[in-house]
Design a protein around this nucleic acid. Structure first.
Lengths: 213, 213
DNA sequence: CGATAATTTGACCGCTTGGTAAAACATTAC
DNA sequence: GTAATGTTTTACCAAGCGGTCAAATTATCG
C-alpha cells in the first residue's frame, strides 16, 4: 500500500519528517524567487534532491506545498505584531517592533518574498486569512495605538496607516533587496544597510510620532 | 511579405499604432496580475481581443511585450523623483514628492505592481537599469537631501533610506492593495484611504525630519 | 528470517505553453 | 484596376507542465 502521509499509523515516520522538511525548504527557495505560477514541481524536486514523483508522494499537489508554506509564514510573520504590548512604553514598543521586523527582513527574506508574491498577485490563496485573523489582530493593536494617542503619549495619527508604514518600510529591505543593493552600490557588501535602516527608521518614527504640544 | 513592425517603410501604420497600444494595455493587466512567468500570451491576446498569432505579429515574443512595458514604466516611474528640486523648500519638496508618489499608486497601480513583480523576482530584465540610470538619479537626489541636512534645513538622516522609505510606504498602497483593503475592511469602499495615507505620511515625514536643535 | 508497510523510480498522459508556417484576406500606392 | 505590401487566420509543433500508475526497492517489525 502506498498512501502518503501517515495513513495507517498516525505517527509520522522519521523519513517523512525529514523529507517533508527538505521539500518545504526547497520550495521556499523556488516559490519566493518565482512566485506560485512561475515555480515548477521539477524545480522544487531538483532543489530538494529527489525525483518529482517522489516529491509528490509527500505533497499531493503543488498547491499543497504552497499552502503549507504560506500557513507557516503567515503565523510567524505576525509574531512581532502580537508582541506589541499595550502596557509598555509606546516609544520603546514601536522601536522594538521596527527592530524586530527589520531583523525578520534580514534573516527571513524568502519568507517575506513568498508573502509579497502572494499578496501582490491578489492573495488568491489567503484572502480569508487577511480579512479574518490578520484584520482582527491589526484592529486590536490599532486600538492600543489610538489609546496612546488619546492619552497624549504619542502624536495623534491614524494607527492603521502607521502599521502599514512600518510593514512597508521594513519589508522593503527583503522584497526589494535587488533594488536596494543596486542603488546603494556594491561597496555596501555586508549587511550594514540593515543597521543604517534601523537607525533611520527609528529616528523617523520616533520623532515623527513624538507628542506635540 | 510579412515582416512585422515596419520593416520597409520606417513609418508605422495607423493599425500598428492602434494594435500595439491595445496589446500593451492588455499585457499590463495580465503581467501586473500574474507576473512574467504567470502570464500567458493567450491571456494577453484574449484581453486585447485578438488571436495569439495576430498578437505575435506585433510583438515577436512574450519578452518583447514585457520589455516594452517595463521600459515605459521605468521612465514614468521616476518622474516624481526627477522633479525633486534642490532649490525648493525642503519641507514642501518632500511633501509634494509623497503626494505625487501616492497619486501614482492610486492612479497607476498596475504599473506599480508590474515593477514590483519584476524587482521581487530578482529584476532579471532590468538589473542594468537599476544599477545605472536609477542609481545615478538617486545618488544625485541623495546629495540634495544631504545638503539640506548639512545646512540644518532638515534633520540629519541617511538620504538613501529616506528615499527608500518614501518609495515603500507609497507603493505599498498599490502593491499590497488587497491586504490594505482587507485590513481596513469594506467600509472603506472609496479611495479615501489614499487621502488618509497622505495625511499620515506627510505628518510622519515632515515631523520626523524636522530639524532639531 | 519473512511479511507487511513505506518509499522510490521510470514510464507515461493529457493539457498548456510559447512560438511557427503558410496561406487567406485587407489595405494602400500607383 | 493591379501589384505590392500589410494584416489576420487556421493549423500546427515541440517542449514543458502538473500529475498518475504500477512496479521495484527499501525499511520496519515480529
Amino acid at each position: 500500500m502506498a498512501i502518503p502521509r501517515a495513513a495507517k499509523t498516525q505517527r509520522r515516520t522519521r523519513i517523512q519528517e525529514e523529507k517533508e522538511e527538505r521539500i518545504l525548504e526547497a520550495a521556499l527557495d523556488v516559490f519566493s524567487q518565482n512566485g506560485f505560477r512561475g515555480a515548477t514541481i521539477d524545480q522544487i524536486a531538483e532543489a530538494a534532491g529527489m525525483s518529482k514523483p517522489n516529491l509528490l508522494y509527500y505533497f499531493r499537489t503543488k498547491e499543497a506545498i504552497h499552502r503549507h508554506l504560506i500557513d507557516r509564514v503567515l503565523f510567524t510573520w505576525l509574531e512581532p505584531l502580537r508582541a506589541f504590548n499595550a502596557e509598555g512604553n509606546p516609544e520603546s514598543e514601536i522601536r522594538s517592533y521596527i527592530r524586530r521586523k527589520l531583523e525578520m527582513a534580514r534573516d527571513f527574506p524568502r519568507e517575506s518574498r513568498l508573502f509579497a508574491n502572494e499578496v501582490l498577485q491578489g492573495a488568491p490563496h489567503i484572502e480569508d486569512e487577511l480579512k479574518g485573523p490578520l484584520k482582527e489582530l491589526v484592529d486590536e493593536k490599532a486600538e492600543v495605538i489610538r489609546a496612546w494617542a488619546r492619552s497624549g503619549k504619542i502624536a495623534k495619527c491614524d494607527p492603521y496607516h502607521l502599521i502599514f508604514s512600518i510593514w512597508s518600510t521594513t519589508q522593503h529591505y527583503a522584497d526589494f533587496d535587488v533594488q536596494v543593493r543596486a542603488v546603494l552600490g556594491q561597496d555596501y557588501a555586508g549587511e550594514g544597510r540593515f543597521e543604517d535602516a534601523a537607525r533611520f527608521l527609528e529616528q523617523l518614527f520616533i520623532d515623527g510620532l513624538r507628542a506635540r504640544a
